[in-house]
Design a protein around this nucleic acid. Structure first.
Lengths: 138, 138
DNA sequence: TCTTGAAGCTCTAGTGACTAGAGCAATTAT
DNA sequence: ATAATTGCTCTAGTCACTAGAGCTTCAAGA
């Protein structure tokens, strides 16, 4: 059996976050020790590692809830899991595209400033006047 | 003079968000009509457009506060504005790098699934077992 | 001038995914 | 036995909004 601190160390999920997940119903409430402390099994460790991994990959908690629910029914078709992962991939790609546009704009803004006074500052001027932007963003 | 709705239409900032910015002290409380409705000048319109633009570029509200403060002192050196923009650029680049790693991982996960049952599903397996990942992420 | 419907007002609470802190109790190591 | 660490619950805060209730004001047409 693992204490909540063991679990935290082994999964990289912080202790208050584990309790928060329990409160949200993402992980089940575990056994308790005589002194009312949480005691986790290896299975619960694995579930938390799963959650951690999915969060790292940017899945929303609601998506993770669906994936956990699915993983409890190994005999069903996995189209739904595929769909969740595919949507996540699309959303990641969109975020990358958006951030690249921002990167371009920020490069232009930051490089054009000649570093004199705020009155001449290209950073401030560019923010004041969207027309200075090379292309649309946001 | 513009009503809050006019301002919203012209800047693309939603009405409740404008009121929220006022509450946060990011925009000053404007004049009021006889019937207590907000009435904005062109200057206030421009400030809101500045804020909108900066938010689109991913600046945090606190950064925007600094940039506004700076823009009120056009005779000072603009190193600080440069610094804020430069840091924002770095942070955008880091986010892009991170998201690209996730993209690679998700591509692998989503493409390997042969679409049969959850028991065989690579999406679920990959999430359960970080060791299946090609490289580190998160 | 009256009326109607859109737009505005304030206030409170909710979102997502945690994080921080207070004030205790239990466990572990020495 | 004692001290340090870890754990407990509970409340509230974070960020940047968003939603809703219940009311008032405004602008345009009849």
């Amino acid at each position: 059996m693992f204490s909540i601190g063991d679990l935290s160390r082994r999964t990289g999920v912080k202790v208050p976050t584990i309790r928060y997940y329990e409160q949200m119903g993402l992980v089940a409430a575990p056994e308790r020790s005589e002194g009312n402390q949480r005691r986790y099994s290896r299975q619960e460790l694995e579930r938390l590692a799963f959650i951690r991994h999915a969060r790292d990959l940017g899945f929303a908690v609601e998506d993770i809830r669906s994936l956990i629910e699915l993983s409890g029914h190994p005999d069903q078709p996995c189209g739904h899991a595929d769909k969740i992962a595919g949507e996540q991939l699309i959303s990641v790609r969109e975020k990358i595209a958006q951030l690249k546009r921002l990167e371009t704009e920020l490069e232009r803004i930051a490089s054009c400033c000649d570093g004199r006074t705020v009155g001449d500052c290209y950073v401030i001027r560019a923010l004041s006047d969207h027309a200075l932007c090379a292309d649309e963003h946001g």
